[in-house]
Design a protein around this nucleic acid. Structure first.
Lengths: 153, 153
DNA sequence: GTTGAAACGCCTTATAC
DNA sequence: GTATAAGGCGTTTCAAC
């Protein structure tokens, strides 16, 4: 799927304001409403626009603390990895799980209410995950910034 | 701001489908449309709903590779940290920047087209960031999963 | 790519209960 | 909280250029 400069402008706008009316979007990217509408549909159908969501304020729902946890498994056998991946996906506090190169096997981004909440999660869920040899937890003191919008070209 | 079970259900739905019509949302959470609409407005006004956005497919816009980079500064003086934070915010490939506890000072989540793109970014932008003593880059082989929706209660 | 029109759905506000 | 109504806005499709 090819994305030209106008498509990129559309994606930029919709990443900032996903409910922007088509008429306004069209004006901002310099197209007529019908042409703009056609492009948006094409971007949706082509998968460039995955979906539209509401972004919820983490603090407002009592998830003020981010912890980055590095996971080392006992071994890298396929069954070990698959069992871990299946189990960690069940932990709703884990927002992201990446399989990494480097010294550690996985990196998790975890969202909890506070340090006590993390201690509890660690004790009750994380430490019991299958195949885990070591967990190294790094508390985020502050989110310096966060981009939700991907840069498009 | 207090969030009851119905608010939580509304947030869950809108985090999955941010353009869901109010009538359908109302039905899913078991409210009349007018009551549901009132709650959504209150969640927006109270800041629980931050905003609505389109999620763009990273691969579709040529950002297939995630790198987690650990940053150690030369020192923790305030000016050093502020200068680093200001400069790193200018690098559009850096999606997240957290100030951490632990051995490293910052963790960055970086989105680039591929390994060569990261090499170039590292050389041209990251290594020149002010105050940086050491950068440890961890390539993500695979995103095991990613939750965009915060668990609400 | 553009304009214009028509149909429909949905939001939004306002009523009353 | 529910129910209903009305107006206006926005989407969506279509036709013609």
């Amino acid at each position: 799927m090819r994305i030209d400069a106008i498509d990129a402008a559309i994606l930029e706008q919709l990443q900032r304001e996903g409910r922007m009316p088509n008429a306004e979007l069209a004006e901002r990217v310099g197209l007529s409403p019908s042409a703009c509408h056609r492009r948006v549909r094409a971007l949706e159908a082509g998968g460039a626009i995955d979906r539209y969501v509401a972004l919820v304020n983490a603090e407002a729902v009592g998830r003020g603390l981010t912890v980055i946890t590095l996971v080392t498994l006992e071994n890298q056998r396929r069954e070990t990895m698959e069992a871990f991946e299946r189990a960690v996906a069940e932990v709703s506090e884990v927002m992201d799980c990446w399989l990494m190169t480097g010294a550690e096997d996985y990196i998790l981004r975890i969202l909890v209410p506070d340090a006590r909440g993390y201690e509890r999660l660690h004790r009750e869920r994380l430490s019991g995950l299958p195949g885990v040899a070591r967990l190294v937890s790094n508390i985020a003191m502050r989110r310096v910034f966060n981009r939700t919008a991907l840069p498009v070209r």
